[in-house]
């Protein structure tokens, strides 16, 4: 942590997350990845929506933007398109990103805009104290699913790949070393990258579902996660009840802002006669 501590706004710590909440671990992994890549703090913008996850940027020593619920990726798109040279990172949660933010998520992925999205998945709406979310497993409890969640939840990796994300990975707060490596590769991917980090919520999801202590919840991650490379050689029975971690998808494709800039530059050269203020509208230029 030592040389990555300088990427934090130390005077804002300790943070507000509950004892044993995984969000701090995920944030730490992101910061270590940034430190390892020696990215310029002055050229990073971290954007978040609303929820426990989205308080993260406040603790990071970059240009940080805490936006409206579900809209982080839309705000981030405006930032990235207007200044492609900035490294734009979105920190969001399962509710923020896949419920109210779902539409912006699939479109950002479709565009393959160079934004690294860190989705802290605690399977619950934590900030509002425990409602179920689109990523609460079926059958589990939430304050708004007192008899068990009857809905199926998203498989974020498949959703991301289908929508067009060019780097998709998953890890957990237990697998923090792997998480850091995956985030590092996501940061290096010149396109839309999604890293889902399962993050234990002991206070609401854990208590409501009697999952024990933070340590118990992380042990559950340990016992139920299977690296995608290992899974390839495991029998279906062995994979029963397990979930995959590791790099799910990595196939670079043309990046949105680069494509737009190249196109626009061509247009601009054609109209170089234009002075700044003297702009005539095409419809009417004689």
């Amino acid at each position: 942590m030592s040389d990555s501590l300088k990427y934090f706004r130390e005077n804002r710590l300790p943070h507000i997350w509950c004892p044993g909440c995984g969000h701090g671990t995920v944030t730490g992994a992101l910061v270590r990845a940034i430190a390892k890549l020696k990215l310029d703090k002055n050229k990073i913008v971290v954007v978040s929506g609303i929820g426990c996850s989205s308080r993260a940027p406040g603790y990071l020593d970059f240009d940080t933007l805490h936006t409206t619920h579900g809209r982080a990726l839309a705000f981030a798109t405006g930032i990235k398109l207007s200044r492609p040279e900035l490294k734009v990172i979105v920190m969001t949660g399962d509710g923020d990103c896949t419920a109210i933010g779902g539409n912006h998520f699939i479109h950002a992925a479709r565009r393959n805009i160079d934004i690294t999205t860190i989705l802290m998945n605690n399977n619950i709406y934590g900030m509002t104290s425990g409602q179920y979310s689109p990523m609460t497993p079926k059958g589990m409890l939430g304050t708004t699913a007192p008899y068990g969640n009857t809905e199926r939840s998203f498989d974020l990796a498949k959703l991301s790949i289908a929508a067009g994300a060019t780097y998709v990975a998953r890890a957990t707060a237990y697998h923090a070393v792997l998480l850091e490596e995956l985030i590092e590769k996501a940061l290096l991917n010149p396109g839309f990258s999604v890293v889902e980090a399962l993050s234990q919520c002991p206070t609401y999801y854990g208590r409501k579902n009697k999952l024990g202590t933070p340590v118990d919840m992380m042990t559950w991650f340990k016992d139920h996660a299977v690296n995608i490379k290992a899974a390839a050689v495991m029998s279906p029975e062995k994979l029963e009840g397990k979930f995959l971690i590791g790099e799910m998808h990595n196939s670079p494709e043309p990046e949105f802002t680069a494509e737009y800039s190249a196109l626009a530059e061509g247009v601009r050269r054609k109209f170089d006669s234009f002075q700044g203020g003297l702009r005539e509208c095409a419809q009417n230029s004689d």
Partner: peptide
């Protein structure tokens, strides 16, 4: 999203 994007752009 349009409103969000122009706020993001204005901030840069």
């Amino acid at each position: 999203a349009s409103m969000a994007a122009i706020i993001g752009a204005s901030l840069t």
